[in-house]
């Protein structure tokens, strides 16, 4: 089986501390894999090793079939990297930035010009292409930077925190662009994020990474259903109906049927939307009046909490982050 990316026990130590520790993953062609974890969890270090920017201290990784150490040059030919910080040249126009990128990756003449037009159109920057990048808004900078990663048609694209620091509305726009680009181009994407909604919305598999280790990796749906699936909660008129309802659902094979407050009953189901009519039918056949029904789908938040014992946002300013920052020395603007 050919994997776009395959790592075996890849490890990176800075001093005595392991930023990434013994990670083995296989990513199939065409996947959109999300690395989800708090700041300092090792996401960027992992991406840096896979994109040949940092040499691993142990283990090995093959990217598009090439070893990241021995065959770094060919790895670089197969990948695109969209950095966390903006690395566009603001003294040039959007088109010039893409054009020079295309030249550096060996695209020639007409092919390059057409390709630049194509990606500009995909991120809706065609009419701003000839203005200087220094006049762009934050969202436009991100769009241009993401588009640049696609110019040379990489097999694999690494997106490091593609929506970091953007307002929620712009973030949703960027997601749409990433989706469009991925569908149009059929590339394999590895993206890091500490936004749960982002991983949930974009990725077909999510790896939860914490303290340099991959804690769990699966589809967002599977991760969420590990928690017992969706929860349907019914509200009824009086306490008298509660016991009858519980008995009714328990005898019909529903799991985790529990009382909520004095007038509510909840139960776990696999596929919430499709089960609501069934649940309501059972109640009305038994002659019980249901006042309201609500559906809670577990979020990746719950998944993260479940696997690491902590909420994702707790550690945003932890020591590990400080350590990671001073080591990776991110570019300032």
């Amino acid at each position: 089986m050919f994997y776009a990316i395959e790592t075996e026990g890849i490890t990176k130590r800075f001093g005595g501390v392991a930023a990434v520790s013994d990670v083995s993953i296989s990513i199939e062609q065409g996947e959109l894999l999300g690395l989800l974890g708090p700041n300092g969890a090792g996401k960027t270090t992992l991406i840096n090793m896979l994109s040949t920017m940092t040499e691993p201290s142990g283990g090995s990784a093959r990217v598009w079939g090439f070893d990241v150490v021995a065959d770094a040059h060919r790895v670089r030919q197969s990948i695109g990297v969209v950095f966390q910080d903006i690395t566009l040249d603001e003294r040039l126009t959007g088109r010039e930035n893409l054009d020079i990128h295309g030249r550096l990756y060996g695209l020639e003449g007409r092919v390059r010009r057409e390709r630049v037009e194509e990606v500009l159109a995909l991120v809706d920057l065609t009419d701003r292409a000839d203005t200087l990048v220094k006049t762009y808004s934050g969202g436009m900078l991100r769009r241009l930077q993401i588009a640049r990663g696609f110019v040379h048609k990489p097999h694999i694209l690494f997106l490091d925190e593609p929506t970091l620091g953007l307002d929620p509305q712009t973030r949703i726009h960027i997601w749409e662009y990433i989706k469009t680009l991925t569908e149009e181009e059929g590339v394999t994407i590895v993206l890091t994020t500490h936004y749960l909604e982002e991983a949930d919305h974009l990725c077909n598999r999510v790896a939860i990474i914490d303290r340099g280790k991959i804690v769990v990796i699966d589809t967002p749906e599977a991760l969420k259903s590990q928690l017992g699936g969706d929860v349907i909660t019914l509200e009824v008129e009086g306490a008298a109906d509660i016991a009858r309802l519980r008995a009714l659902y328990e005898s019909n094979g529903f799991a985790r049927v529990v009382t909520r407050g004095s007038t509510g009953v909840s139960m776990a189901v696999r596929d919430g939307e499709r089960n609501i009519p069934h649940v309501l039918n059972l109640a009305s056949r038994a002659g019980i009046l249901v006042l309201s029904v609500s559906l809670h789908k577990p979020a990746l938040d719950d998944v993260f909490l479940h696997h690491t014992g902590r909420a994702l946002r707790d550690r945003e300013t932890g020591d590990a982050e400080e350590y990671g920052r001073s080591r990776t020395r991110p570019m300032r603007r």
Binding site: H73, V81, L88, R333
Partner: peptide, 11 residues
Amino acid sequence: SGILKEVLIAP
């Protein structure tokens, strides 16, 4: 400013 990273990652 980070511009160099973009150039240095090219093959």
